[in-house]
Design a protein around this nucleic acid. Structure first.
Lengths: 241, 241
DNA sequence: TGGTATTTGTCCGTATGTATC
DNA sequence: GGATACATACGGACAAATACC
């Protein structure tokens, strides 16, 4: 893994921020002095700072400098359950157990109403499955997936029980560059109440994601239905202009 | 408003995407041909494309090109209620009415438990207010604000009823570059049930936001509690590596 | 008040690396 | 292997906002 220059600079700066090494001034050194420190061009420094900006560690102000934001120690970042590809991320980092049970598995054709809901073209063939995710032996997430058969060929229950993304990326050799997400709160369905540890909540947090492959086609529509307790989502917004 | 070059190129490309002018190949012209078309440097083209990338219109693939993603017509973008600074955005664009009523207004000092919750330092003085937001005459959002008195001086009920952000930006002349946000689902409190049009939901969608001013200090902690019906949040994620 | 230096923002041109076809 | 296309990096020029004297 050869690391790019701007990435290593980004990481060095981030470490300094977290360890509060810029606390006297509350500002980063100027771009020009960072150029000297890291022996690189100003553009490279600017890329590293742009990354810090987009993740909420700092904010740049024209004519003034780059200000370090408060509370970088608390770091709500990366705590986000359900980050990119499902929950595989949290199983790596923390000492939590995760398991998956496949509730249903079928192959079907998209009709008009399903096309409306999922965005797949009418007539497309998809795998449709319901999977229950256990975290520390508690059923906390119900995943409802639709995968385009043209892309995800020969899906089986065995694969669905492990990691579909692993199958797609390693066995099929496909790249998954990006996905759109929508976050909503919905009334719990009968199925939600039957399978999830909902306590007395009558709602679930829902993440609807559309995932794309290299040629621009959407190949996955997923509703990830979470019990409220374990549903937290972090983002950072920058004001335009 | 002098528009930057990369912004106008970004807008031109976005228009073409929405109007499906790249549909034959499903790809953008190569960066070099866009350089000729727009008479600019390759860096400028790359900035425009990076913007499209981050908003989920396209995805770049090394060695291949820039792929247009499906469903840009549906454009879930910008539908997001509670975008940057509260709900002023939706009141502009759509033909909906919005009103605010101030339920409570006080000045208080942050104690240990409030510091834990909000992130303000113990001993800070803040304005604490509850405001109910009506959309089309329905009480749909309960905003619970904490503003640092050192920054937002002389806040009044009259100002809170209009737009606090307008007051901060225009009257106080402060810039608000960025904010962190957390999205959660919580059990409805007694106050939620009393004031919001919750129907039979017993949960609310909560957006917790920390907003910063130029010097890096957090000056606002807000819980924006939404009825589930009007709570939708859109984001776009890109796979790292 | 005004002028100058500093600092970030935008833009340009070029070279090299790397993945795809 | 060669052509094409995106990715990274360098260096330089000027503008705009800010800070300082």
């Amino acid at each position: 893994m050869p690391k790019e220059k701007f990435t290593s600079i980004y990481e060095a700066l981030k470490d300094n921020i977290i360890q509060k090494k810029y606390q006297e001034t509350n500002m980063l050194p100027s771009e020009l002095s960072l150029v000297e420190e890291f022996h690189c061009s100003r553009n490279t420094i600017r890329r590293a700072i742009a990354q810090l900006n987009s993740e909420g560690y700092v904010q740049s102000i024209k004519g003034k400098g780059v200000v370090v934001l408060e509370m970088n120690n608390a770091a709500p970042f990366n705590l986000s359950i359900s980050n990119f590809s499902g929950l595989n991320i949290i199983t790596k980092n923390k000492d939590v157990s995760a398991a998956t049970s496949v509730l249903s598995f079928e192959r079907l054709m998209i009709d008009e109403t399903l096309s409306q809901k999922t965005g797949f073209k009418t007539g497309s063939e998809v795998y449709h499955l319901h999977r229950l995710r256990y975290i520390n032996n508690e059923p906390l997430i119900l995943d409802i997936n639709y995968f385009l058969c043209d892309v995800v060929k020969d899906l089986t229950v065995e694969i669905a029980q492990k990691s579909i993304y692993h199958y797609i990326q390693h066995d099929l050799g496909l790249k998954i560059p990006s996905s759109r997400r929508m976050i909503r709160v919905e009334k719990a369905t009968q199925e939600d109440m039957d399978v999830l540890a909902l306590k007395d909540y009558n709602c679930v947090g829902v993440i609807i994601s559309n995932t794309f492959i290299e040629d621009g086609r959407m190949f996955e529509y997923t509703e990830s239905r979470h019990t409220p307790d374990n549903f937290t989502f972090v983002e950072f917004a920058q004001n335009q202009k």
